[in-house]
Nucleic acid binder design. Structure first.
Lengths: 245, 245
DNA sequence: GGGGAGAGATGCCGC
DNA sequence: GCGGCATTTCTCCCC
């Protein structure tokens, strides 16, 4: 494909807020929060309608290079060939593609106003505990959720049947030492702010690392093995059973 | 574009280890580590030669949905239209695209054996401190780097002019409470393993959050405001000045 | 494969 | 904008 017609077509597509995708052989240099260099190879470049730019190698999950929305992308043709220079003045970042060969180019005006809904998050987990406090223990009474403290916020906060204050920190995945430290800060802060010397700390997670378990024990905290909820899966099963009729 | 010729073309491209890209109007359901749903809109789907699959909306930096290498992708045509089902048995994940309309399709055999080099990382920062210990203070003598302990590893480890042991934890970005807790664990571990009661802890980072600063003070630790090195940028400037001649 | 930690992390929310 | 924190984090390294 001819460089100058490529340049024209991409520039027109960007002006029209289209999403541009092309495959090419190129090298990449990035300079900004860090510095990176990638020697020549075949890549797919996508420039979205909001000027987000991603560079993908033909393997791997993540983009090898990218520029966020807010960057400007310009094309230069000189003796050395075709170059794309992306600059983000605000973030003081820049990226340069030296393009050797173009494999394909496609641009299209894409319309998408939908936003993803996600379930099974840590917040869903604390919702579940608010709804079913017996998951922590009989007599546990949640008082508030995401209580803001100077050190952050607490997932679930309440008291047990003997009126001891209880802080529950939820993790939707295996909990490590960081989760224990987080719980420690919340408990320490609550003790100070309320002037009491006994606050129970409970880590709720589907599993713990051994280090986390030892730290919990050292600090006199407890844990509960609780799986995060999966509402969608439940819904899908219901739909499936409806479809059976 | 016709659904059945689309299906054939994509399946053939996947068999041939090509990278496949298509634009379509579709809805997406994901079930695995969490559950997600995205109603119909225009998206770009990329299937790489290693079977990585990413779904991009026409805006945003990150893919809205994805499946990692190891997943299988199959296409089904029925009364409801065209569906793509990706399943990853090992990770117990699945994704379903209900495709309403196809905007474009492109597949290409891409060759890329290059891997990115990155500079300005935390390791580069500890390298810099090893080379220029006076950045910490006059008389600081680094002894080793990335000293492994039971709780992880220490970035830089040495002693000051009065022969006190010093642990330096490097962060190449704003350091938060987690960095202080990390430093705390390293210092605690070193005190125990060497049977000494005084080890200096220093957090080296370009900036600190207020919480981190207060925690440092509480624990009697210090900090140094140090920027991570940017070798590439330096190199580029040299090249630029060479080009000036 | 699990565990631990960094990352150009990204993204969200709250102040 | 910063701060604090979750994330289908991703990635690497080491045991």
């Amino acid at each position: 494909m001819d460089f100058s017609s490529f340049k024209e077509q991409v520039e027109r597509a960007i002006r029209n807020n289209e999403t541009v995708i092309f495959g090419c052989a190129c090298s990449v240099v990035y300079s900004g929060r860090a510095e990176s260099f990638l020697e020549t190879g075949d890549r797919v470049i996508m420039i979205k309608s909001d000027n987000n730019l991603i560079v993908h190698q033909p393997h791997g999950t993540s983009p090898v290079n990218y520029m966020k929305a807010g960057a400007d992308h310009s094309f230069i043709i000189d003796d050395g060939g075709l170059h794309m220079e992306s600059t983000d003045e605000k973030r003081k970042e820049s990226m340069i593609l030296d393009i050797i060969d173009i494999h394909f180019l496609h641009s299209h005006p894409l319309q998408d106003g939908a936003s993803i809904t996600l379930q099974g998050s840590e917040k869903d987990m604390s919702d579940m505990i608010m709804d079913r406090p017996e998951l922590i223990e009989d007599g546990f009474t949640p008082l508030s959720r995401e209580e803001h403290t100077e050190h952050g916020f607490v997932d679930v906060f309440g008291h047990d049947k003997d009126n001891n204050l209880v802080i529950v920190e939820c993790k939707r995945f295996t909990a490590g030492p960081a989760a224990v430290e987080q719980l420690t800060r919340y408990v320490r802060k609550l003790k100070r702010s309320r002037g009491i010397d006994h606050v129970r700390g409970i880590l709720a997670a589907p599993s713990l690392t051994k280090t986390a378990e030892r730290l919990l024990e050292e600090k006199g905290f407890e844990h509960r093995l609780i799986d995060p909820p999966n509402f969608h899966r439940r819904q899908k099963r219901q739909q499936a059973s409806l479809a059976d009729f």
